[in-house]
C-alpha cells in the first residue's frame, strides 16, 4: 500500500471510530454517574436508542425559523466530525492532520459554537438568547486558558500540529514534567467548561437558572436535535481524546506500525473508559456554580496553564 493511501485509511478508521463510539462514551459516563448516585442507569447504549427515536420523528420548526436555524445542526455536526478527524486517537499518521493544527481545532469548535448561538437567537425566545450569551461568555473566557494549556506541549514538541505533539510526547524518554501536570489540570477545567458539564453547566437539567447548553437547543426537535446531541457527544469524546493525546499519549502507534494497532485501540478504549469514570466522579462530587463564578473558575485554569508554561521555561521540565 502506498503511504498516502495508508494514511487515508487510518484517517477514516479513526474518524469513524470516534464518531460511532461517541454516544457510547456519553452513555458510559451517564452510567457511571448513575452508579455513583445509587441508581441503576439506562445502560451504555441509551444515547443510540434516543437518537434512533429522534431520527424517526417528524421535525417541528418554529414559524419564523430562518435557514440559519435549519443549517446549524448540520454545520455543528460536520464541524465536530472534522475536529474528531484532527486529533490522533490510535495512530499519529493522519491524512487530514496537515489541514489543521491546534489553533485551527479551537477555530472549528468556535465555528460550531457561533452557529449554535446564532440558531438559538433565531427563534427569538427568552431562553434562546439567554443561552446564547452565556455560551459565548463561557467560551470567550475559556479560549485563552485553552491556548495557554497548549503552550507547554507546544514548547516541548516545537510544533502546533497535533500529530507532531502527540508523536513527540508519546515517544520520548519518560520524565516527570510538572509543567505538563499543571497544564493537564487546567485542561480538565477547560474541558468541563467547554462541554457544558458540572460545575459550569448541568447537562441533565432544564431548570432555567442553571442551564446553558440546553437553553440553546430548546427549540430543536427530531433529526435536528439528534444531530446536535450526536455532535455534543463527539465534542466531549474529542476533548477527552485530545487530553489523552496531550497528557497520557503512551500506547499511540507510530506511522506504519500496523501490528501495534490492536494494542493502541485497546489502550485508547481503556483510557477513554477511565476518563469517563473520572469525569463521572468529578461531576458527582462537585456542585454547579453560579454563572458569575465561572470567570473565577476559568481564571484559575488560565493561571494554572500559565504556571505550567513558566515552570517549563524555568525548570526545563
Amino acid at each position: 500500500m502506498s503511504p498516502f493511501f495508508e494514511s487515508i485509511l487510518s484517517q477514516l478508521t479513526q474518524t469513524l471510530l470516534v464518531v460511532v463510539l461517541a454516544p457510547a462514551f456519553l452513555g458510559w459516563l451517564n452510567q457511571c454517574r448513575a452508579w455513583l448516585q445509587n441508581r441503576s442507569g439506562a445502560g451504555v447504549l441509551q444515547p443510540y436508542r434516543v437518537m434512533r427515536k429522534l431520527f424517526h420523528k417528524d421535525a417541528v420548526l418554529a414559524k419564523n425559523a430562518s435557514p440559519v436555524f435549519r443549517a446549524a445542526p448540520y454545520v455543528q455536526f460536520s464541524c465536530m466530525v472534522l475536529a474528531a478527524s484532527i486529533v490522533p486517537v490510535i495512530e499519529t499518521d493522519l491524512a487530514f492532520s496537515p489541514a489543521a493544527d491546534v489553533i485551527a481545532l479551537v477555530g472549528i469548535f468556535a465555528l460550531a459554537r457561533v452557529f449554535a448561538a446564532l440558531a438559538a437567537m433565531d427563534i427569538g425566545t427568552a431562553f434562546g438568547t439567554m443561552g446564547a450569551r452565556r455560551e459565548m461568555l463561557v467560551a470567550s473566557l475559556s479560549e485563552p486558558a485553552l491556548l495557554m494549556v497548549f503552550f507547554t506541549p507546544l514548547l516541548i514538541a516545537q510544533s502546533t500540529s497535533l500529530n507532531a505533539i502527540a508523536d513527540a510526547l508519546a515517544h520520548r524518554q519518560f520524565a516527570i514534567y510538572p509543567s505538563l501536570a499543571f497544564a493537564a489540570v487546567a485542561f480538565v477545567m477547560v474541558l468541563l467548561a467547554e462541554n457544558a458539564r458540572i460545575p459550569i453547566d448541568n447537562p441533565s437539567t432544564h431548570l432555567e437558572l442553571t442551564m446553558i447548553h440546553e437553553a440553546l437547543i430548546l427549540e430543536y426537535s427530531a433529526r435536528h436535535l439528534a444531530l446536535i446531541e450526536w455532535a455534543t457527544a463527539i465534542k466531549l469524546t474529542t476533548y477527552c481524546a485530545l487530553g489523552i493525546a496531550l497528557f497520557v499519549p503512551w500506547g499511540l502507534a507510530q506511522t506504519g506500525e500496523w501490528q501495534m494497532l490492536p494494542v493502541s485501540v485497546l489502550a485508547f478504549a481503556g483510557k477513554l473508559a477511565l476518563a469517563g469514570a473520572a469525569l463521572a466522579v468529578l461531576e458527582t462530587v462537585s456542585a454547579k456554580m453560579r454563572i458569575f463564578r465561572a470567570p473565577e473558575f476559568l481564571g484559575m485554569a488560565f493561571l494554572l496553564a500559565v504556571l505550567g508554561m513558566l515552570t517549563f521555561l524555568l525548570l526545563g521540565a
Partner: peptide, 11 residues
Amino acid sequence: GRVRRDLPWDC
C-alpha cells in the same frame, strides 16, 4: 425530510 411548521415551543 418531513417538516412541520408551528409556533415556537418556548418550554
